[in-house]
Amino acid sequence: MREVWVGGSVGELRDALAEALDGGPAVLPLAPGSESLRDAMAPSEAVEPGTALIIATSGSTGEPKGVLLSAGALRASATATHKRLGGPGHWLLATPANYIGGVQVVVRSLLAGTTCAVLPPARFTGDLFAEAAAPVLRADGPRYTAMVPTQLTRILDAGGPGLAAARAFDAIIIGAAATSTALRNRAAEAGVHIVPAYGMSETASGCVYDGVPLDGVEVRIGPDERVLISGPVLTHGYRLRPDLTAEALVGGWFRTGDRGRIDEGRLEILGRIDDMINTGGVKISAAAVERALGACPGVRDACVVGLADDEWGQAVAAAVVIDGPVEVDDLRAAVRAAAGSAAVPKRFRFVDSLPLRGPGKIDRAAVVSGIFGTVG
């Protein structure tokens, strides 16, 4: 196992990945300060056969686990991505390289025979994005990058050089968190070509682009609305956890933690399996309430959680980011119309931003404890 501590430079990671793709030691990319996560990967013990990359993550549960990916899975994902986007090209790495989305930008540039530019690990701004993107945008051929919705939102908010740079990319993959309809519309109106992606470490990054699976990837919906995925991009297990591997991989299919449906060949994610809120005996999807709130004028973002409640069991609560005047009664009416009376939040909090974890995902536990000041 070759440990690579990633920061402002990706040269060592690029070299390590090149060796791993050709059968060399497995790569474990780590962010500075993640020593405990590194130790949980037991670097002194033998690596599972066929492993080229280990993505160490604590996920939403806080339990450390390492996702094992083969060279074949990494290559299959990168090759299918290039085919979907318009061919191999030049890449800007705009997300941390210890997460699968960042790693795959490096892998794609390797397979394309190009050298990716790197956005410095500082607070993201449109100006910094434009500066980092400059060498990519000067290159001939397709120009790509990948980012999280929060980054795109900041670019659209700031305008100026960052927005001009974003418009110049042939495609910007948006992943790690859901892309709201409002954000899609803002990007289209601004002339920014985005490609919302769905995937995870276990699928070697995004494997469904704008609702359509990449070539070689199959998606089906289980009887409990669980999204199931198969194809050459899949993980072959978890580091030193055969129990988790057996639970997640069944008959060649990866059992995701997401609910979804397929409509006219396109996958729509409905929310997490565990995002259901039981309020007064009625099960409510937090994601459905978030979509209803996000469609309201003046709402930038929303996170819906269930809070422990003596009367209801759980009370629906919404933390909402707004960018204009919003009336709570209007929000209640929108949720009632979209998801029913039981789904109407009993508590609202208006905030400047939502807490994030990892590469742009909303930290729901922090919303519960930090915004609503409770443990559940």
Results as ranks from 00 to 15, higher is better:
93 L>K: 00
236 H>I: 03
134 A>I: 00
350 F>T: 03
208 V>F: 04
367 V>G: 02
186 R>L: 13
114 T>Q: 02
50 G>T: 02
302 A>P: 10
366 A>R: 14
74 L>V: 07
258 D>Q: 07
264 E>C: 08
159 G>W: 09
202 E>D: 10
266 R>Q: 13
313 G>R: 10
287 A>R: 14
265 G>H: 11
66 G>F: 10
282 V>R: 13
149 P>K: 07
334 A>N: 04
234 L>W: 04
125 T>F: 02
332 R>Y: 04
262 I>R: 06
99 Y>D: 09
56 A>E: 09
353 S>P: 00
41 M>A: 14
215 D>R: 06
350 F>G: 03
85 L>H: 12
358 G>C: 02
243 D>F: 03
253 W>P: 04
356 L>E: 12
348 F>C: 01
36 S>L: 14
201 S>V: 07
71 A>E: 05
358 G>T: 05
374 T>I: 05
327 E>R: 15
135 P>M: 03
196 P>Y: 11
21 L>R: 08
323 D>T: 08
52 A>Q: 09
84 R>Q: 11
122 A>R: 14
333 A>Y: 02
149 P>R: 08
227 V>D: 02
156 L>R: 11
122 A>M: 02
124 F>R: 00
233 V>Y: 00
249 L>N: 08
101 G>Q: 07
338 A>P: 00
97 A>F: 03
310 D>Q: 14
117 A>S: 14
135 P>I: 01
238 Y>E: 06
301 D>L: 07
87 G>E: 10
